[in-house]
Structures are given as structure tokens and as C-alpha cells.
């Protein structure tokens, strides 16, 4: 067990201004619970996606696990250390990547930042060179490490950032939105590199992202939190099985906005209908209504050009779970 968390809670005190008087402003003190009683554990080598809407408490939890934030109550160990007490000892075992922040020195060549980091972690210089070469090969950044960081594109910089966090061979890598703002190809490349690294090197990955493709591609487990509480903690497969009972039928029609062509008598039970331009999306629960019925029904009502049946995408599942969570029916 490389990470275990028990009843972790973090409360912030907030100040709400009561009066706008310039000299004697008065505030009402309140509290805001960012993370509420979260418990879970992670095995070495796991690749965990940590997801939830904005402000759900993902970053707060990551910060507590990396030792930057002291929790209000609860207990956690990371790689055998209590992060907020043994922060500096833990530092040798974890790496951190923030998609929106840089740990490279902006006006200097990338290699200088790397050399500096190698000294910070007291790496043996020969081993460091070897490892840097390997990482450059894996992430294909060999050509750019002599360039100034300010001249790199966002995608190139992100790769260099990740390599910077891996120089000291951490057991755990925390990634906060690593693919934010990147284009489709670079994202795909980065995912491949990360997966390759995690599998071959046994690094435990903990990743937050709003891009479900990141999660599908890299992770094998999903922890979903909302309003500071854990809603779901299961493997990606399990999650699919549970929520992918449903199938999605996509019909391409001749009519625009086909939803409005359908008669009112169209079956309602077990179907969720959406339409977009010339497409009709039907989320169908096959236990309630047979797929063939739905399709034949649709064919009789509209001029269908194309039909496809598939799993509901992860994004839809997550949206669905958020929705359930909001309505207080998470379990």
C-alpha cells in the first residue's frame, strides 16, 4: 500500500465582509469544507484518475498528499511518510507536475533547470546523466533541452516539465491537469509516454484531469469526488460495467433536429433522447426496452441515413454521476 488515506478532512476559514466601511471593516467568519472525510488507499503501480468538477476538492487532496497542506483532521501515509510532517523526506519519493505552473526557469535553457534539480535531489551525476538520456528518449525531448524554456511551445514545455519531475526517480507522480491547453496530437503523445513510463517503471500515477480521454487512456482506476466527498472509487472496468449497462444509439437523419419529428407516443421508459444538428442520440437501457424495438421504431418515424450502436462515452457517465450526486442519490 503506497498511499492510504483515512477520514481526511480539510476546512478553510473564510471571511465574508459585512460592512464596507473603509477604516473599520467587519467580517463574518465562516468555514468552508473543501475535503470531507475521504478515505481510500492506492497500491503501488496503480494509475488513479482523480476526477470531479471544478472546486470539488481534487487539488486540495493532492496538496495534502504531497505535503503542501496540513489537513484539519484525518490521517494519511504516502510512501511510508506522513506527508505534512515528513514533507522533506517525502520529497525524494514524489514528483509533482502542475499543468498551469512551471518549475523550469523561464529564461534559461531546459538543461540548466535539470542540472539544478539534480543537485537539489543530490543525485549521483553519472546516474543522473544516464537517466536523463533515457527520459529524453522516452519523451522525445532530446532536441529541445538546450533551448530556452521561453522559446518552447506549450506541448514541448509540458513534456520537459514531466521529465523534470521524474529526474529523481520518484515512486509516485502527481499530475494536476497535465494536458490542459494542449492540442489533440500532443495530448495523445503525452498520454502514450506517461502510460509507457508507468507500466515499464512501476511509477504510481495520480492524475487529475477534465479530459476523460486522459483517464481512459492512462488510468486503471477512478476516484470521483464532488463537494469534498468521495462518490465513486472503483476500477475503470467496474465503472464501465456498472454504468455501461446502457447503450447509445446514434442515428443520422435527413431531418434537422430529428427529436422534434418523433411523435409524442414515442416510448419514454428506459430511453433518454437528445438531438444535435442531424443526429439523434438515444441512451437506452436494454433491460427495460429491447434495442431492436427502439431501432425499428426510429426507422419508421424518421429518414435514417446511418445507424451506430455503442457504449455510452465516459464523459456521459461522469455527467450522469455528477447529476446523481447533486440529487443526493449517489449510492
Amino acid at each position: 500500500m503506497i498511499i492510504s488515506i483515512n477520514n481526511l478532512t480539510k476546512t478553510f476559514t473564510t471571511k465574508k465582509p459585512l460592512s464596507k466601511k473603509f477604516l473599520l471593516p467587519r467580517y463574518e467568519k465562516g468555514t468552508f469544507t473543501a475535503v470531507n472525510d475521504i478515505s481510500f488507499s492506492i497500491q503501488a503501480g496503480d494509475r488513479v484518475a482523480f476526477i470531479g468538477p471544478n472546486g470539488a476538492g481534487k487539488s486540495t487532496t493532492l496538496k495534502m498528499l504531497s505535503g503542501i497542506l496540513t489537513p484539519t483532521s484525518g490521517h494519511a501515509t504516502v510512501a511510508g511518510f506522513i506527508p505534512w510532517i515528513d514533507r522533506k523526506k517525502l520529497a525524494y519519493h514524489i514528483g509533482l507536475v502542475f499543468g498551469q505552473r512551471s518549475q523550469l526557469w523561464y529564461h534559461s535553457p531546459v538543461i540548466q533547470s535539470y542540472d539544478l534539480l539534480s543537485k537539489v535531489y543530490g543525485l549521483d551525476q553519472k546516474a543522473y546523466r544516464q537517466r536523463l538520456n533515457l527520459l529524453c528518449e522516452t519523451f522525445k525531448i532530446g532536441g529541445m533541452i538546450n533551448q530556452k524554456v521561453s522559446t518552447l511551445s506549450l506541448g514541448q514545455r509540458m513534456k520537459c516539465e514531466i521529465v523534470a519531475s521524474l529526474l529523481h526517480n520518484p515512486k509516485i507522480l502527481f499530475l494536476d491537469e497535465p494536458t490542459i491547453g494542449l492540442d489533440v496530437t500532443t495530448k495523445a503523445e503525452l498520454r502514450d509516454h506517461l502510460l509507457d513510463l508507468a507500466v515499464s517503471n512501476g511509477v504510481t500515477l495520480i492524475l487529475t484531469s477534465h479530459d476523460t480521454a486522459d483517464i481512459e487512456k492512462i488510468c486503471n482506476r477512478v476516484v470521483l469526488i464532488n463537494h469534498g466527498e468521495k462518490l465513486i472509487d472503483q476500477s475503470l472496468e467496474e465503472m464501465r460495467r456498472q454504468y455501461l449497462r446502457k447503450k447509445m444509439i446514434v442515428l443520422t437523419t435527413e431531418e434537422e433536429n430529428p427529436r422534434y419529428v418523433l411523435p409524442v407516443s414515442w416510448p419514454q421508459e428506459g430511453i433518454h433522447i437528445r438531438s444535435e444538428h442531424y443526429k439523434l442520440f438515444l441512451d437506452v437501457d436494454p433491460k427495460i426496452i429491447a434495442l431492436s424495438d427502439v431501432i425499428s421504431n426510429a426507422l419508421s418515424q424518421t429518414n435514417v441515413l446511418d445507424v451506430s450502436v455503442g457504449d455510452v462515452p465516459l464523459e456521459e457517465i461522469i455527467k450522469h454521476i455528477y447529476h446523481l450526486g447533486k440529487n443526493g442519490a449517489a449510492s
Binding site: 525524494y92 535531489y121 543530490g122 543525485l123 549521483d124 546516474a127 543522473y128 544516464q130 537517466r131 533515457l134 527520459l135 528518449e137 522516452t138 529523481h168 526517480n169 509507457d196 513510463l197 515499464s200 517503471n201
Partner: peptide, 15 residues
Amino acid sequence: MSLELTLCTKNAHPP
């Protein structure tokens, strides 16, 4: 390709 490379530190707490 394997990245297995035991690295790092000569001792647990380098200067």
C-alpha cells in the same frame, strides 16, 4: 524500453 534504473542517491540523505 525499460526505465528501470536505480538511481539517485549515494545515501539516504544527500547533502
